[in-house]
Nucleic acid binder design. Structure first.
Length: 564
RNA sequence: UGGGGUAUGGUGUAAUUGGCAACACGCUAGAUUCUGAUUCUAGUAUUCCAGGUUCGAGUCCUGGUACCCCAGCCA
């Protein structure tokens, strides 16, 4: 992932990198970070920011980055997510080597440390119910009250805690709490719960445990056990840092990791909360976690976004502590910029209109050279078949074109890309007045796309030979939501874009598209970038539109108040 | 009338010890073009507010304001 440019620092600095630089300068040269997902859903583009930060920082400072699953709540976690998350991180382009960890690997040690806390008088078993604990906790402005069980002796607590582990109590019957300060302004310090009783099969530990540590009791300790030096997380954990530090201080941990918080990513027209993405999937608003409209890595991948573009995006948005909303247009730009340089060009007609070249001999076929990628000569050329009957894009013809419309119209001459100039001579309609076919003539002298007499045309159209065309379905995706801030007012479901998916069922592709590798993103000339979808069958290919090309004409039409 | 954070163009970020507010995206023009794409050129617009210190403040001081997070036995 490193560039051959040995000068340009591709990643600008940020406050996190500043902190690490300072630490390194002070002699703490070992830099260890970690990406710590909970396996209760799929990764999304917000996670990509964190992944790029954690792995990027580790690489830049010659350290390492761990992949650690924070799997402390078996009620919500599944093996499917564990597998998917690993696949997504790899796809994004990162490698954790041997450093794959699970918080659950530390369950035994965490349990011992809980007993340690109890022995030191720093934790106690509470019999209060969840409701009572909430009530005793106080409010944001009023201090809490001590639990009546707060002053049990260490021996009594030890006995109770061991019996919790042994399964003597019902789920939720008792908890272990840290003994800190029920009057703290920071609610996380009002005797936070460290262990709860929960009988649910754990994807890793099965039914070995019926008590599970909370996030707070597992995260920092896992960092310490792994030797993580810089524990990077999002802003909402800022209030947890005092607790993180308290636990590390009061436990015989092998190291003292430090937590730093940065702002999570927000993106216009999308929603990046795992809880709400889960709801989109479960409520059937999308086809699954990898629906191409989803901001999940699996969805973006299926839509055809290259991981390079995502990494570029992550680098450009920066890392700060201020809440912000990044425009989707920036992501779009990163995608187009990468694909413009790397994607092969092909021709495909999404909404076919037949053109008959009247002066072209029937049954004859010509083979024309076409460049695979004008931005990359090494991509070579291919041959495109031409014949008397062709498909062109329906919207590239207007019977009564306005002055700004450069494309085909009665009596107009345009270029067919890499082929010939053609002139429209007749428009054929059905009984209902719909245009069913165009009759044209071509100029044999313009073979290859240029006129020897130097005459110009105002437009170049993409096309496909009818006799050689491959049928396909093309799925056009738009923003999943109509608002830049879905769910900001009312129900998120009300903001779903009813036109987020448009299916073009009978598209016609040039033959070279027959054997595109699934997952490869290609430019359909003049239309956009498209990616073969696994839904394809032997007799029908399926393509997803990754993103359209910028379209000055469409913009003009929009601005002049819709189409005419 | 709790605690923790954050404020720089439309958006996201930058700005050595206080020294001409910069980069990118977007947008608007124009040039080039066998993709109305790409590329190129130009333009557009910014320091939350009020005081203060200073020759000079985005940066330092004082006082405000706005917004975000926290009352899971979720992470």
């Amino acid at each position: 992932m490193s560039t051959n440019e040995n000068t340009a620092p591709e990643q600008p600095g940020d406050f996190i990198r500043d902190v690490i630089s300072t630490d390194v300068a002070a002699g703490r040269t070992d830099v260890v970070t970690r990406f710590p997902p909970e396996p209760n859903g799929y990764l999304h583009i917000g996670h990509a920011k964190s992944i790029c930060l954690n792995f990027g920082v580790a690489e830049e400072f010659g350290g390492r980055c761990h992949l650690r699953f924070d799997d402390t709540n078996p009620a919500k976690e599944e093996q499917e997510f564990i597998d998917a998350i690993q696949a997504d991180v790899r796809w994004l382009g990162f490698d954790w080597g041997d450093h794959l960890y699970f918080a659950s690997d530390n369950f035994e040690r965490l349990y011992e440390w809980a007993e340690h806390l109890i022995s030191e008088g720093n934790a106690y078993v509470d019999d209060l119910s969840a409701d009572e604990i909430r009530e005793y906790r106080g409010t944001l402005t009023e201090p809490g009250r001590n639990s009546p069980h707060r002053d049990r002796t260490p021996d009594e607590n030890l006995d109770l805690f061991r019996r919790m582990r042994a399964g003597e109590f019902d789920d939720g019957g008792r908890v272990l709490r840290a003994k800190i300060d029920m009057a703290s302004g920071n609610i996380n310090l009002r005797d936070p719960v460290l262990y709860r009783i929960l009988r649910a099969p754990h994807p890793r530990t099965g039914d070995a445990w019926c008590i599970y540590p909370t996030y707070d009791f597992a995260h920092g300790q896992s960092d310490a056990i792994e030797g993580v030096t810089h524990s990077l997380c999002t802003l909402e954990f800022e209030d947890h840092r005092p607790l993180y530090d308290w636990l590390v201080e009061n436990l015989p941990t092998p190291a003292t990791p430090r937590q730093y918080e940065f702002a999570r990513l927000n993106l216009t027209y999308s929603m990046l909360s795992k809880r709400r993405l889960t709801a989109l999937v479960n409520d059937g608003h999308v086809d699954g976690w990898n629906d191409p409209r989803m901001p999940t890595l699996a969805g973006l991948r299926r839509r055809g976004l290259p991981p390079e573009a995502l990494r570029d995006f992550a680098g450009r948005i920066g890392v700060t502590k201020s809440d912000s909303v990044v425009e989707m247009a920036l992501l779009d730009h990163c995608v187009r910029e990468y694909l413009n340089k790397h994607a092969l060009r092909r021709m495909a007609v999404l909404d076919p209109l037949k053109v008959v070249i009247e002066n072209y001999p029937e049954g004859e076929t010509d083979e024309l050279d076409a460049v695979n990628n004008p931005e990359d000569e090494s991509a070579g050329k291919r041959v495109v078949p031409f014949s008397r009957e062709l498909w062109v894009e329906r919207e590239d013809f207007m019977e009564d074109p306005p002055k700004k419309f450069f494309r085909l119209g009665p009596g107009r001459e345009v270029r067919l890309r890499y082929a010939f100039f053609i002139t429209c001579t007749d428009v054929i309609k059905d009984a209902a007045g719909n245009i069913t076919e165009l009759r044209c003539t071509y100029d044999p002298e313009t073979r290859g796309g240029n006129a020897p007499d130097g005459r110009k045309v105002k437009a170049t159209l993409h096309w496909v030979s009818v006799a050689h065309a491959i049928p396909a379905e093309v799925r056009l995706y738009d923003h999943l939501f109509t608002r830049t801030d879905p769910g900001a007012e009312g129900d998120m479901a009300d903001d779903i874009n009813p036109q987020s998916l448009t299916v073009q069922a009978d598209c016609q592709l040039e033959p070279a598209l027959a054997d595109v590798a699934a997952g490869e993103t290609i430019q359909f000339e003049r239309l956009g970038y498209f990616c073969a979808d696994p839904d394809a069958t032997p007799d029908r290919l399926v393509f997803n539109r990754t993103i359209g090309l910028r379209d000055a004409w469409a913009k003009m039409q929009k601005q002049s108040g819709g189409k005419k």
